[in-house]
């Protein structure tokens, strides 16, 4: 393993992503947590670039760092968010979960560590958007169209759920 620029870039991006995740767990204010997570999302976009997936990286920034994060911020602000106190009697549960997570990570890591596939030359970075577009509108066109339906359903569902019922509003 050589200290190439690519490696340096990966290391710094990975570090930012992990620090963002850890901050998510440790910060007390909800707003700060979400800001910390934005850094993680943007780092992940960088990781995508390293993996020759420019289009996915752009979508990542657009949707995660942009849309979802903003949506979450709105949700936070629309609800009561100053109550950051932890529930009682959860220390044991947290400890147990921590152990479980560490055990899970260890087990999966054993699998990853020995993962060694011969690297084949790929052409993903050449005209990435073109390749994606071709695949999406030819091979994967049916899932693509279904996704549009899914998004429509989600849109309508979200509006109906979140809509303040007229009658209830009158009652209150």
């Amino acid at each position: 393993m050589t200290f190439s620029g690519e490696f340096f870039a990966f290391m710094s991006l990975a570090l930012v992503a992990v620090i963002g995740g850890v901050l998510l767990l440790n910060l007390t204010k909800v707003m700060h947590m979400i800001i910390a997570l934005v850094f993680t999302f943007i780092s992940i976009a960088g990781i995508y670039v390293l993996l020759s997936a420019e289009f996915v990286a752009v979508v990542q920034i657009l949707i995660y760092a942009g849309a979802i994060t903003i949506l979450m911020l709105f949700a936070i602000m629309l609800t009561k968010h100053d109550d950051a106190s932890e529930a009682q009697g959860t220390i044991w549960r947290k400890l147990l979960l921590l152990l479980g997570v560490i055990g899970f990570a260890f087990a999966v890591y054993i699998g990853i560590y020995n993962f060694n596939v011969e690297q084949l030359p790929s052409h993903l970075h050449e005209n990435n958007v073109l390749q994606i577009g071709k695949a999406l509108y030819t091979k994967h066109v049916i899932p693509f169209e279904l996704t549009s339906v899914l998004l429509l359903v989600a849109l309508v569902g979200a509006i109906i759920l979140a809509k303040n019922d007229e009658k209830e509003a009158h009652k209150e």
Partner: peptide, 20 residues
């Protein structure tokens, strides 16, 4: 959340045993 935690801990135990 509690249900999820329990299910996950069970899964983790199984996975660890599997890995070991």
């Amino acid at each position: 959340q509690t249900y999820g935690a329990m299910a996950f801990v069970g899964l983790a135990v199984l996975v660890v045993i599997f890995a070991l």
